[in-house]
Measured scan of single mutants.
Amino acid sequence: MAMNGTITTWFKDKGFGFIKDENGDNRYFHVIKVANPDLIKKDAAVTFEPTTNNKGLSAYAVKVVPL
């Protein structure tokens, strides 16, 4: 089920960042999981599918909501 969130941290040079989800949890995401990576920036609103990996909470099918 899709969730909403906000990008809180973005490491462009490393290709990953973190999203604060609607429950207040931080989720890892990688640029290859983003549909529109050219719009990635700190504080951008996103929708995504929540999941977990071996390191904890993460996100896939991430879409940055255009302003």
Score class of each variant (00 low, 15 high):
residue 41 K to L: 07
residue 53 N to Y: 08
residue 49 E to Y: 15
residue 39 L to N: 07
residue 27 R to K: 00
residue 22 E to L: 07
residue 32 I to M: 15
residue 35 A to G: 08
residue 55 K to W: 15
residue 42 K to N: 06
residue 11 F to P: 01
residue 42 K to Q: 09
residue 50 P to K: 04
residue 38 D to L: 10
residue 35 A to L: 15
residue 59 A to V: 08
residue 36 N to W: 05
residue 47 T to R: 09
residue 25 D to N: 09
residue 50 P to W: 04
residue 28 Y to E: 03
residue 24 G to T: 03
residue 12 K to R: 09
residue 59 A to M: 04
residue 34 V to F: 05
residue 66 P to N: 11
residue 45 A to P: 11
residue 39 L to H: 10
residue 53 N to H: 09
residue 33 K to C: 15
residue 27 R to V: 05
residue 26 N to R: 14
residue 51 T to D: 09
residue 16 F to N: 02
residue 40 I to T: 03
residue 15 G to K: 08
residue 34 V to Q: 03
residue 56 G to N: 06
residue 10 W to G: 00
residue 56 G to A: 06
residue 16 F to K: 02
residue 24 G to F: 04
residue 49 E to K: 15
residue 12 K to G: 09
residue 4 N to I: 09
residue 31 V to D: 05
residue 18 F to I: 09
residue 19 I to A: 00
residue 65 V to F: 10
residue 27 R to E: 00
residue 20 K to Y: 09
residue 42 K to R: 12
residue 28 Y to V: 05
residue 40 I to D: 00
residue 54 N to I: 12
residue 21 D to W: 02
residue 37 P to I: 06
residue 32 I to N: 15
residue 43 D to N: 14
residue 3 M to K: 06
residue 45 A to E: 08
residue 64 V to T: 03
residue 67 L to Q: 13
residue 36 N to H: 06
residue 50 P to H: 04
residue 56 G to F: 09
residue 24 G to I: 01
residue 20 K to Q: 09
residue 36 N to K: 05
residue 6 T to Q: 08
residue 66 P to W: 09
residue 34 V to K: 03
residue 39 L to V: 07
residue 66 P to R: 10
residue 59 A to N: 02
residue 67 L to W: 13
residue 2 A to Y: 12
residue 23 N to T: 05
residue 18 F to P: 00
residue 12 K to Q: 09
residue 40 I to H: 02
residue 29 F to K: 01
residue 27 R to W: 10
residue 46 V to D: 01
residue 54 N to S: 14
residue 5 G to T: 01
residue 67 L to M: 13
residue 39 L to I: 07
residue 28 Y to F: 13
residue 6 T to P: 00
residue 57 L to T: 03
residue 23 N to G: 05
residue 64 V to H: 02
residue 64 V to Y: 03
residue 13 D to R: 11
residue 12 K to W: 08
residue 41 K to M: 10
residue 62 V to R: 00
residue 11 F to R: 05
residue 35 A to P: 04
residue 14 K to A: 09
residue 40 I to E: 00
residue 24 G to C: 08
residue 3 M to Q: 05
residue 32 I to W: 12
residue 64 V to L: 05
residue 2 A to K: 14
residue 59 A to K: 01
residue 50 P to Q: 04
residue 38 D to S: 11
residue 57 L to D: 04
residue 4 N to R: 14
residue 7 I to A: 00
residue 6 T to H: 11
residue 28 Y to W: 11
residue 64 V to W: 02
residue 15 G to C: 08
residue 27 R to D: 00
residue 2 A to F: 12
residue 37 P to H: 05
residue 4 N to E: 07
residue 25 D to W: 06
residue 13 D to T: 11
residue 18 F to N: 04
residue 67 L to V: 13
residue 52 T to L: 09
residue 28 Y to R: 03
residue 17 G to W: 02
residue 50 P to G: 05
residue 54 N to V: 12
residue 24 G to L: 04
residue 43 D to F: 14
residue 12 K to F: 07
residue 32 I to A: 15
residue 57 L to Q: 05
residue 12 K to N: 08
residue 49 E to L: 15
residue 26 N to W: 12
residue 44 A to I: 07
residue 67 L to P: 14
residue 32 I to R: 15
residue 26 N to P: 05
residue 35 A to E: 13
residue 24 G to E: 04
residue 15 G to M: 07
residue 62 V to C: 03
residue 61 A to Y: 09
residue 28 Y to K: 03
residue 19 I to N: 00
residue 6 T to G: 02
residue 17 G to K: 02
residue 14 K to W: 11
residue 57 L to V: 03
residue 49 E to R: 14
residue 28 Y to M: 06
residue 60 Y to G: 12
residue 62 V to Q: 01
residue 58 S to H: 06
residue 49 E to H: 15
residue 24 G to M: 05
residue 5 G to C: 03
residue 52 T to M: 11
residue 51 T to I: 13
residue 41 K to D: 06
residue 26 N to S: 13
residue 38 D to G: 11
residue 11 F to Q: 04
residue 59 A to H: 02
residue 52 T to E: 12
residue 47 T to F: 07
residue 62 V to K: 00
residue 4 N to W: 14
residue 19 I to F: 03
residue 33 K to L: 13
residue 17 G to M: 02
residue 7 I to P: 00
residue 3 M to Y: 06
residue 48 F to Q: 00
residue 47 T to Y: 07
residue 63 K to F: 11
residue 50 P to A: 07
residue 9 T to K: 14
residue 49 E to C: 15
residue 42 K to M: 09
residue 23 N to C: 12
residue 16 F to T: 03
residue 42 K to P: 08
residue 34 V to S: 05
residue 2 A to R: 15
residue 53 N to K: 07
residue 60 Y to D: 15
residue 65 V to T: 09
residue 16 F to V: 04
residue 46 V to P: 00
residue 67 L to N: 13
residue 7 I to N: 00
residue 1 M to A: 12
residue 35 A to S: 12
residue 13 D to Q: 10
residue 44 A to M: 09
residue 24 G to N: 07
residue 31 V to N: 05
residue 50 P to M: 04
residue 51 T to N: 09
residue 28 Y to S: 05
residue 25 D to A: 09
residue 60 Y to V: 15
residue 49 E to V: 15
residue 64 V to S: 02
residue 52 T to Q: 13
residue 11 F to H: 07
residue 30 H to M: 07
